[in-house]
Amino acid sequence: MVFIRDTELVLRAAVELVNTLPHTEVSGVDTLTRRADLEAFVTAHGYTGSRTRDEDELARVRGIRSRLLELWRVDRDGAVPLVNAMLADGRTLPQLVRHDGMDWHIHASDPDEPLAMRILVETALAFVDVIRADEYARVRVCDADDCEGVYVDFSKNGSKRYCDAGNCGNRMNVIAYRRRKAETTA
C-alpha cells in the first residue's frame, strides 16, 4: 500500500474530478455539466456534509477543477505553495472523524462549508501525504499521445503509464501492435 486508504480514496476522487475537464479526456467533452453529474460524483466518492444541490454548487465544483489540475503540472516542491494555499483558503481545521463504515480518518473542513471548498481541502490534505511520503513522482499525466488525462500511480512498482479516462493503455498498445505489424509486413 502506497498511501493510507482515505488518502487513496481522495486522490482517486481528485483524479476523476480533474479528468472531467474537456481537455483531459480523449473525447474532448466536459463530463461535469449537469447537477446529476455532480450528484453521481459525490455519491461515488462518499463526500459528506451540507449540500445545496443547485447550479451554484455545480459551478463552484467545476471552478476548482483547474486549480486541482495545477497539482499535476508541478513537481513536489512546486506543489507545496499550491497545497498550502488550498488549506489556507479552506481555513483548515483537521479533525478525526468516523462515518459511513470508514474508520478514523481526517476531515479538514467544517461539514457546513460549501462542497467545492471541502473537496479542495480534502484533496490538499491528501496531497500533503503524497508530499510527505516523497511519492510525488506518482502524480502523473497520461503518456498517451492524444490524452492529457491525469492519474496517481497506485501500482506497487510505480510503473503505470496511462490514465483510465479514455482506455489509453489499450489504445496505445493497439497502435504499437499495428505499427510493429506494418513494419514486419512491409
Rank of each mutant, 00 (worst) to 15 (best):
D129G: 09
D56H: 01
D110C: 08
L82Y: 03
G149S: 07
R118H: 09
E55C: 05
D56R: 12
D56W: 05
A182G: 08
T92R: 04
M86N: 03
D6G: 06
G49C: 14
L21R: 14
T48Y: 12
E135T: 02
R132A: 15
T48G: 13
A126Y: 14
G169C: 10
L87G: 01
P114R: 04
A85W: 00
L93E: 15
Y177N: 11
V80A: 07
S50C: 11
R53K: 12
V61M: 04
N19C: 07
G28R: 08
S50T: 12
V97L: 12
Y177D: 06
Y177K: 10
V2Y: 01
L38Q: 00
L71S: 06
D145Y: 06
P111C: 13
R140D: 07
F3P: 05
P81G: 02
S109T: 15
D153G: 02
H107D: 13
R76Y: 00
V121G: 00
V18E: 03
T52E: 13
C168L: 03
D164E: 14
L96G: 10
D129I: 08
V61W: 00
D6S: 15
T185L: 14
T48P: 05
D146R: 13
R180L: 13
D145A: 15
V139W: 01
V15G: 07
G149M: 06
V130L: 06
V10I: 15
R51W: 03
V2C: 02
R179C: 04
I64F: 04
E70H: 14
L71M: 08
R60K: 10
N173W: 09
N84C: 05
A116F: 03
T48R: 13
G90Y: 00
G158H: 03
T24I: 07
L115H: 09
